[in-house]
Design a protein around this nucleic acid. Sequence first.
DNA 1: ATTAACGATTAACAAATTGTTAATTAAAGG
DNA 2: CCTTTAATTAACAATTTGTTAATCGTTAAT
Lengths: 254, 254
Amino acid sequence: MKNKFTTPDGYTSDIAVFTITSESNGEYKPPIKKLKIMLIKRSELDHEGNPNSEAGKWALPGGFVRPNETAFQAAERKLLEETGVDGLRIKHFGVYDSPNRDKRGWIISNAHYVIANEAALKKRQTTYDASDIQLFTINKALELDLAFDHRTIIDDALWFIKKDMALTTLAKHFLPKEFVLSELQGVLLTVLDDPSISSDAAFFRKAPTLPFIEAVTENGKPKKSNAYSKTPAQLYRFTDFQPIVSVYKNKLKG
Amino acid sequence: MKNKFTTPDGYTSDIAVFTITSESNGEYKPPIKKLKIMLIKRSELDHEGNPNSEAGKWALPGGFVRPNETAFQAAERKLLEETGVDGLRIKHFGVYDSPNRDKRGWIISNAHYVIANEAALKKRQTTYDASDIQLFTINKALELDLAFDHRTIIDDALWFIKKDMALTTLAKHFLPKEFVLSELQGVLLTVLDDPSISSDAAFFRKAPTLPFIEAVTENGKPKKSNAYSKTPAQLYRFTDFQPIVSVYKNKLKG
DNA sequence: ATTAACGATTAACAAATTGTTAATTAAAGG
DNA sequence: CCTTTAATTAACAATTTGTTAATCGTTAAT
């Protein structure tokens, strides 16, 4: 189609892939959890052999959207192509379209974020060259010389994750099906900074009453785990309950 | 610039302008408030005299983004050009880029929404032909034959407004500087459906303790208004306090 | 001048939810 | 058996809800 409007020079889709890694902190202790983001090093040459824009810099996975797909579908495709990761919950969170954001021209980027359970990323490790695709802690990532305006995009993505973590049951996607309260606490603390979560006394008293998690039972008995403690700890799972929060009321239900 | 990627045929910016109208409900009664959306009737011919796409249908204000501006800036510009409305808080909430959403080709639209105090729209009424630009209640708007995928966009915008109304002090933008509790309640009820708001007993007991509003005083005395009742009612205003909500705790402070 | 009506508050109080501090518990490792 | 460590409970005062029943300050009608 021809039209008389100036049209963009490109339409891309970028994805911020977040995960929380668990690092053993000694036996019988809850592991240390850290929020990490997956970045890809831009190759020197593009797939046609020409020098690549922003070559050598670290960047978010992503690429050009094809005319027969949506940016969302492109995000799914790119994620699989570039990182070998599949089947995760992708969320759109913003558009980056400053006229000068890309030296190649007027290129609009749709930004998405993805929450990956650490296990889901394990597959990738073996399929791809680990030097070109790496997990960075947020602090490390923000110290890097990032391609385009990806630093801004990551900043924004972080803000969205924090919001989602506080307002929804997003934590579920960072946890195994059945988990122990200290694991939930650990996940929340990688992103949220709140005394009611960091104080054990407050958290352990309140958490069991949260309407969106329930204690797991087995043959009518509470199911417990010794994975991170000597004392068997109760296992919990998320229910389907979707909490509704509001500044005008306190209760999550009704 | 030339490049080897297929590029979009157009990049547009659409704006859902919401306002809450107050309709008198008799003397000494709180007025009836309704959430409305501003729509524009698409003209038969475009500005070059050619038949316009989706002519005659009602649509969101908006239009093509210029290469030297962002979609956000285009939204500001279009809003002023098409509706005479200026200086409002515009928020981006989504991208619409299904390959088939526009018969003219691959056209990507950025969707924004705006909250307009009813007074801000008054200006428009006098400057523009009222038959081509109108406020509709949400129900009426969704019954219309809307252009493109604007019905979907409006549905989504509504959802965002509800969320923002519940999670932030968005209500402030629908109210005068100083307002009475029943006005706040009226605004909330146009969008939210919650017994703790609709029940007078619950709302009037709780509202005065909300951390983000404060009673207005004048010469040390409480300032009251008789605008909607025989009994003088306390005036309130929003403070700068930004409530933080979380599914993991109840208090808005701290 | 009295009084009924009607929103807008206030009062009062039982019920439920917090925040805190101090026990308890179970298993590992001497 | 004793100590240590996390997980979990107990106990209780302090605070916050949900509800129902008064009050209060006008207006409009006897």
